[in-house]
Structures are given as C-alpha cells and as structure tokens.
C-alpha cells in the first residue's frame, strides 16, 4: 500500500513543470518578432530595408525560432518515442504480409528510436523474430531518412511545402523499396549465420514507465540532440541569411541545375560516399539551393546522403551478401532518382 502511494506521488511529481515551460515557450515564440525588430531598429539603430539590416534581422530571428521549434518538437517526439520501443515495433511487424508490413514498418521507422550504430542488432532481432526481409528493409530505410529534426529544419528553412514533400516521398521510397526487396525473394543473400542467431526473448518484459520518466526522456532527447546539432543549425541559417539572393549562379548551379537531365543521378552518386545525419546535411542543402541547384536535385542529394551511406553499407556487409546490398542500394537510388525528376519537373 505504502509503495503504491509513493508511486503515485512520483508519478504526479513535477506535473507543473511542463505547464510552466510550455507557457514560457508560447510567450517567447509569440514575442520573438517584435523583440527582434526592436533590437535591430532601436538598440542597434539600423535602417530597415538595407541589405545588411535585413540579413541581420533574418539571422537573429531565424536562429531562436528554429531552436525553439526544435526544442518543442524533439521534446514531444522524445516523449512519444518512449511508447515505441524496437521490441514493440518488432512485435507489430512479425509475420505481417507484404505491403501492409512495408507501410507499417516505414511509419514505425519514423517514431521508433533508432541509431545507425544499432542497425545490426536491430536487423538480427527483426529477422530472427520472423519479420519479413522486405519489411525489415522498409524500416531500415525510413528510420534514418525521416525524423523530427529533419522535419523541423526543413519547415524552418524551406517552408511547409518542402518538408511535406520530403517526408511524403521518403515514405514512398521506404515502402516501395522494401516491398520490391520482399517481392524479389532475396532471403538467400542474407549471410547464412544470421539464420542461426538464437535470441533470448526473456528480457522483453516492458519496464513500466511513469509520466515522470517519459518527461525526463523528452528532456534528455532535447539536450542530447541539440548538443550535437546546434552548430549545423547556426551555419545553415548563416548561409541562408548571408547568401540570400547574393550568390551568383556558378559551376555547381549549372552542373546540378534543372536543365541538366543528369543532375539528379549525379547528385545521388555524389551523396553515397558522404555520411551525415539529416541535421548535418541541411545546411549544405541550403547552400546548394542558393547556388541555383534545383529543389528536386537538392532533395535527392539529401536523401542519398542520409539514406545511402558508405559507412552504413560497410556495417550491413556483415549480415548481407553483396547481391543484396547491390539490390538495396540500386532500388533506393532509383527511387530517389524518380523523386528528384518528379520535383524538378513539377516545381
């Protein structure tokens, strides 16, 4: 009885903290524009309309805005992710049919916590439990490519439309590529020893999390992710501010511009040896766009860097034979080429 009382107290402990933080967040976000305008015009005494003034205004406004959005989204996603463990995701996907399985795996790839360093144990855990190979691939493609940080940065720097396009087409690629890998029956190209893995399922009991623990997970996610990526955000916004309409079209622009049909495939090939998470690549994408690279080509480049990377391929080489790796890279690359072409054509 006493233990129960303590548990309830612990559960309720600190309920007001999120409420206070959220109120502070709303006030800051709401008052940001007037405060920035006041600082620029009255404290710095700069004249509105001049190029330097507007560049400075853009930078001083965008950095806190994007960081505020990131804090909120990462915090919320951090809490949501405590409800989606890899174990639960695997349970949902076990023995699912093609297509439904690919769809679910791609969606779960967005919300399940994933780190490319855990790709191997995750792959083994899925395959061992009987998740179909194609479904496992849908998960492995969606997880690094689509995440909350990428979403917020895309919204902040390029607007809603680009963000929705990126997430939508990323999902289509993950679903379609996994589905095709499943259809092609490539199971024989998984390293033999994978099928001899015997995993214990004893340790699967979910530890019961209190609201307090979930709240802390959200807080930890914010400090961990922001600690890693803040520098990229500042660089990305500085580039966006400094280069606004300034940078002339140059070599890169003419090479990867809309007129060149080979722009998209070239961007993808350039992207494969590079490795970065979604947050790190976005500043580069903003540079590319400023240099006259078309949107479809820039998005294709971003997807190639985060979705197809040499280090990840080397990690996967431990569990997959080269035929399967080639199929995986080839199918995903073709998917990205389509996305790039469609957007260069439509936009």
């Amino acid at each position: 009885m006493r233990e129960k009382v303590i548990a309830i107290n612990r559960n309720m402990k600190g309920w007001f903290i999120p409420v206070i933080l959220l109120t502070l967040w709303i006030i800051t976000y709401w008052k940001l524009q007037p405060v920035v305008d006041y600082t620029i015009n009255n404290i710095f005494g700069l004249v509105s309309g001049k190029h330097l003034t507007e560049t400075l205004r853009f930078f001083i406004f965008e950095v806190p805005k994007v960081i505020l959005l990131l804090v909120l989204i990462i915090f919320i996603v951090g809490i949501i992710r405590t409800y989606f463990t890899p174990e639960k995701t695997r349970k949902v996907l076990e023995g699912k049919s093609l297509f439904t399985g690919n769809l679910l795996a791609s969606l779960l790839g967005i919300v399940t916590p994933f780190c490319s360093c855990s790709a191997i144990p995750l792959f083994l855990g899925f395959v061992e439990a009987g998740v179909p190979l194609g479904v496992t691939f849908s998960f492995l493609i969606a997880a690094p490519m689509i995440n909350e940080v990428a979403l917020v940065l895309l919204i902040g720097l390029f607007g809603w439309k680009v963000a929705v396009i990126y997430v939508g087409t990323g999902l289509v690629i993950a679903i379609f590529s996994g589905w095709l890998i499943g259809k092609l029956h490539l199971e024989k190209y998984v390293a033999e020893w994978v099928y001899s893995v015997k995993a214990s399922h004893e340790n699967e009991a979910e530890t019961k999390l209190l609201f307090y623990d979930r709240f802390r997970a959200g807080y930890e996610a914010v400090s961990e992710i922001l600690g890693k990526i803040w520098i990229y955000i500042i660089i990305g916004i500085a580039v966006g501010a400094g280069a606004h309409g300034y940078v002339p079209q140059d070599f890169l622009g003419s090479l990867l511009g809309k007129e060149n049909w080979y722009g998209v495939p070239l961007a993808i090939i350039m992207g494969i040896p590079m490795y970065s998470n979604a947050a790190g690549i976005i500043p580069i994408v903003s540079v590319l766009l400023e240099k006259g690279v078309s949107l479809g080509t820039a998005l294709a480049f971003m997807m190639s860097v985060v979705g197809l990377s040499l280090p990840e391929i080397i990690i996967l080489k431990k569990v997959l034979k080269w035929q399967l790796i080639t199929a995986f890279v080839g199918i995903v690359a073709i998917g990205i080429v389509f996305v790039g072409f469609i957007f260069n054509y439509v936009m």
């Binding site: 890899p86 360093c117 855990s118 144990p121 855990g125 995993a199 214990s200």
Partner: peptide, 26 residues
Amino acid sequence: DIMEIMKFGVMTTPALVINGQVVVKG
C-alpha cells in the same frame, strides 16, 4: 561479439547486464 549480444535479446546497443539480466538498453 554480436552473436553473444543477440543471446541477451537486445536490439539496441549499448546495453548493461547485471547477473544475467538486461537492465539498460540503448
């Protein structure tokens, strides 16, 4: 060794095992 790690049924590394029981993962 990944084969040994899988025997503990974890899918996210690093993990901590105390007296044969997984207490921390990922």
